[in-house]
Design a protein around this nucleic acid. Structure first.
Lengths: 330, 330
DNA sequence: CCCTTTCTTGCAATCGATTGCAGCAACCGG
DNA sequence: CCGGTTGCTGCAATCGATTGCAAGAAAGGG
């Protein structure tokens, strides 16, 4: 049922070369008669060229690999939508992988995508494959870091300003009169998003003359008992560095019978569909997720097409969406 | 920097054939000496075979295409996670496309995936490409419908029982003493998920002797003014057939100054990370999303491997998660 | 020691495209 | 009528693997 160029050629009474030239749009010097003939046969057979063969010969697949560290995080849904949109626009296809923050799996995927000869890779990297990634970049392979950077690796990357994001939260809370602000984040060594957000928090506090800060870290797999932490620092506000973690923290605070924002104010990370429907509606740091996806994809496509990018890193700007969860009640 | 089998062969002093046989694990009759020699060269060069060439020759790519109708819906995130997991387990890669419920885009993606010679396709189909899909199935192409069926097409599909899902909601609400139950759904012609849920609702109501029902339909792009609808039917409970739509409805009801569940109870569709954090916590119909993804993927892989599936359709069972939004207050 | 059988390995065709080079036909002017 | 252009098309090599067939080497039997 599947036809080849050979078949089309035979039925049109021409050679493969001619068919190929017509289909690839190399309009140069093909008589209108043969062109019509060939196109009608193509139509009739419903022929479509085998992309594998084409890719093999052309040494390009028009496929981009995407490696995410945690597919379950709803944040990626919007990013993914932007990535898909850009891919579609430029005629690329997307191959998706989920490393689950596992270094070995990530490595296997990188190799595997390369074996499949993807033209470029978008990656939200783990911290476990530094040398491999560095090597890849060094060899000129089109690679773009998505939302995370890796210490010590100069790479094209598209990220959102994490320090600024947290500082928006800090400034807002200070404006509302809160002073004892704690931060809750994930306990994952070396992940730039978390470390930068923690730094942003400390900087922000320091600027207001506060050096006694509280950073609470939750291991992704374990529970976090807020009770002793709360007792020790007695915060009047909490900033959380991740969307799902925010829900977790809210739940734990409720268990301590703390009212939001009366006893403790909350600012969460990532604007989500549900943020405004929580009780009380949640103040969030909104990251431009779709743009993140779009721009990163456009970047990798530019690299593929041989363009030099003017900047190694594109840094997007977060906003704060203020809702009741962080507004001082009288 | 990229080596070919030829290079490996030359450096090992053997022919391509031998290298190929060793790497493809065809252990039959290769002397241990040459095997070791070749493997060491492979190691040294860091050689990995070109999958394009292999795929071309073998006429299989070990890639599965996934076409979703609406990537933005958080429901898919969990499904996707299940799909990815199964793909990974069986050594397949995933190519993702988003039709955005657009028939033309869907068609283009189907053709394009076929051109790329994916081994099989998982699709959450729109209603616009019946003949094409039917034809595909007829030719024996491994295709599995995901979460939706298409009227008039017998296909392998994995779905969740939609009638039963809604009826769980109806029964629960009746148990709580609600009688004037309205349903809100999307106004999309012919989409099985919506039509089946509407039917389930009507059946459930009829069984309780209620023939006067209210189905409110929201066009995906337009606003829905609940005020007149509410006035007309005066429901004491509302079931919503989609997760994001549920948030929308809750917002509109709030604008009408209706208290939940005091004035009107709510049951939403899809168990989400945020459901239990809403105010009040939301009762939901929980679909086994990850299993949906896993099983559909396993099905298409079986089809690819030539197995006959014992049943055309696998129907999974939803559950109800009861929370305060649908519990009668005294 | 020769012939047969069993291991190993290589040759060359194949998968389905793309493309440089060359050849043939038609057309032109002189 | 002939040589030179120009226009159109085909031949055959190539991309990087896989694999049927056959040949050469090694081993075994008489």
């Amino acid at each position: 049922m599947k036809f080849t160029m050979e078949d089309v050629a035979k039925l049109s009474g021409v050679s493969k070369s001619t068919v190929s030239r017509i289909l690839s749009g190399k309009t140069v010097n093909i008589s209108e008669k043969t062109r019509q003939k060939v196109l009608s046969v193509v139509q009739e057979l419903n022929y479509r060229p085998n992309e594998l063969a084409r890719s093999l010969k052309m040494a390009q697949t028009r496929v981009i690999g995407l490696i995410l560290s945690d597919l379950k995080n709803p944040f990626w849904m919007t990013v993914l939508d932007g990535v898909e949109e850009a891919c579609n626009q430029f005629g690329y296809h997307l191959m998706i992988c989920n490393s689950g923050n596992n270094g070995d799996k990530e490595q296997e995927y990188i190799l595997s995508l390369q074996q499949r000869r993807v033209d470029g890779i978008l990656i939200n990297p783990t911290v476990h494959n530094k040398e491999m990634l560095a090597h890849l970049i060094q060899t000129g392979f089109p690679l773009v870091f998505l939302n995370r950077t890796i210490q010590g690796i100069v790479a094209n990357s598209v990220v959102v300003n994490n320090r600024q994001g947290i500082r928006l939260a800090v400034e807002h809370l200070f404006g509302q009169g809160f002073r004892r602000i704690a931060l809750v984040t994930y306990n994952e060594e070396g992940v730039s998003t978390w470390t930068e957000r923690v730094e942003g928090y400390k900087e922000g506090m320091r600027e207001h003359g506060i050096n006694s800060v509280a950073v609470w870290r939750k291991h992704p797999e374990a529970e976090l008992n807020l009770s002793p932490l709360y007792e020790e620092y007695q915060p009047d506000a909490v900033i959380v560095t991740n969307n799902v973690l925010t829900l977790y923290v809210i739940e734990r605070l409720r268990e301590l019978n703390l009212r939001i924002p009366g006893d403790v104010a909350i600012v969460g990370y990532d604007e989500t569909v549900w943020a405004k429907h929580l009780a009380p509606p949640l103040t969030t740091i909104k990251q431009p997720a779709r743009e993140l996806g779009r721009i990163a994809t456009e970047s990798v496509i530019k690299l593929i097409q041989g363009e030099k990018l003017s900047d190694d890193a594109v840094t997007l700007t977060p906003e704060i969406v203020v809702r009741e969860s962080s507004v001082r009640t009288r």
